Structure formats: C-alpha cells, structure tokens
Amino acid sequence: MVDLDPLIHEFYRDRYVEDDRLIRSGHGRLEFVRTQELLRRWLPPASDVLDVGGATGIHARWLAEDGHRVTLVDPVVEHVEQAATVGTFSAEVGDARHLRQADASVDVTLLLGPLYHLVEASDRAQALSEARRVTRPGGLVIAAGINRYGGLIEAGSNGHLSPENLHFFTEAFASGRNDGKSGFTVAYFHHAGELAAELTGAGLTDVEVLGVEGPAANILQNTPPEAVDGRLPSAVLLARQVESDPNLISAGFHFLAHGRR
C-alpha cells in the first residue's frame, strides 16, 4: 500500500500533466533538454535504471531508447497504467520509501520527483537510503530538488506576485514547505547545499549538485510558444555555462544531484 498524500494524488491525477509540461511549455522544454543532457553525461552505457517517481514515463521512454533497461516505479496508479502501455520498459506501483527491489540490484537509481513531495526530512532520508540500498556498489543515485527560490522568482516574473499572495511564497521560502495553496501541490523546496547534505547523509560519496535550467528559465516560461525554438539553444548554453556557479545555481527552478554508492 502506497502512503500518498491525497492532495498530491489529486493534483497529479486530475490537474497536472507532466508529459505535456515538459514537451510544450518553454520552461518545461528547457528542463527536459537539460535533464537529458545531465543524465546522458552521468549514466554508464546500457545500465539497469530504476526510475522512482517516473510518472507516465517521460524520461523512461528516452532512457529505454538509449539502450538502458528501465523499471519505472510511481505511487500514482493512473501514471503506472499509462506508462505500462509504452512497452519498452516495465512499470509498477511503489513507494520511494519502501522499494521492493533487492539490495544492489540496479546500476542507477533516479529520484526525479520523490524528494519534492516528501515534506518530512525523515521521509526524504528514508527514500535516499532505499535508493542507496538498491544501487550496486559504484553505482549512482541521482535526485532532483525544487529550488526554494523558484516559486517566488516565477511569480515575480510572470505578473502573478502581489501583496495579497506574497506570503504564500515567502513562507515557503522560509520553511521549504509548500502547503498547496499557491498553485502547486504539497511539496518541499530545497537549497542546493541542503540537497547535497541529504545525499551525503544517506551515505553517498562524490556528491555534486548542479542547476538544471539556469537564468533563462523564466524568460522561456513567458516566451510565446512560436518563439521558444529560437531561444532554446541559447538558454541551454547559458544553463550549461553556469550550472555549478554558486552565484547562479539558484537562478532556475530545479537542481539535479548525483552521488555514488
């Protein structure tokens, strides 16, 4: 039985289409391209990959096409049912905190969403511990985090920030916790150093945290769809240039961290 917050389940089942966001919106396309770029940089060829929190398979699809053997795990039954129709990877219902996979059974474990929605530090620690457990010695655990500045930057850039709703963003900035009233669902937002500390605390070594989208994320988010193609290459180049710059790592919406077992 998966212990999933009903608000999170409702959000992803009824209100939010991850595949659509990563393919159609300007920011989503930048995030997708950069996530592909970083994973291809880090993953060994033909790896056994466990995609925990893989939703409907937006990343599992291309990973399988790249020659990896992918198993997708997600707590939302509707996501798993959709992912299972793809046919190039396996998909099952599961909880990042209680994986059914055996010890040291995969080369790479991806947590590209679970740490967003495990608000309690103990739950995030358990998910990372499970990811380490199922990963072979020398293998990689790769985890995404939402930048704590992200919601405030986005709202301030698209005209949605006002004196009336400012407290939603400043409260989340102070605590890292989002209660689901600001437009996004129940979530936890990280600082870059905090995400690195959580991976290190789980026993992973050689931990590195990079910025995913870079400073152009909000520009692309507010770019007309017909103009995104022209701006995307420059945005990717900029993100790549500043991905590890401590002064700019928090300019985008997401972090991607990796550590080795």
Rank of each mutant, 00 (worst) to 15 (best):
V119Q: 08
L237V: 15
L4R: 01
L111K: 02
E164V: 13
V77A: 09
V141G: 03
G26D: 11
G193W: 08
P215I: 07
L152K: 05
D5P: 12
A172M: 13
L152W: 06
Y12D: 06
Q126L: 03
E243T: 08
G150V: 04
V77T: 11
G214N: 10
L99K: 05
G230Q: 11
G145Q: 07
A83D: 01
A143T: 03
A196N: 04
D229N: 14
Q126T: 08
D19F: 11
R177S: 00
L50H: 03
M1L: 00
D229L: 05
L4K: 01
T109A: 07
P114E: 00
V242C: 07
L39H: 08
N247G: 14
T109C: 08
L38A: 06
A196W: 00
V207A: 08
R177M: 00
L256F: 04
G28N: 09
D20L: 15
R97V: 00
H9P: 02
F184G: 13
L39Q: 02
L195T: 07
D103K: 06
D74L: 03
L161G: 10
L220F: 13
G180F: 11
A227L: 14
G214H: 09
L232G: 10
G54Y: 01
A144P: 07
A91H: 04
R61M: 06
E18G: 04
R261E: 06
S90R: 06
A127F: 01
L232K: 11
Q36T: 12
A235G: 10
E226T: 15
D20M: 12
A46L: 09
M1Y: 00
R177I: 12
D19T: 15
T200D: 05
F255P: 06
L43V: 09
T185Q: 08
A197V: 02
V186L: 12
F189W: 08
T170F: 06
P225M: 10
G193L: 02
G53W: 02
P114W: 01
F89Q: 03
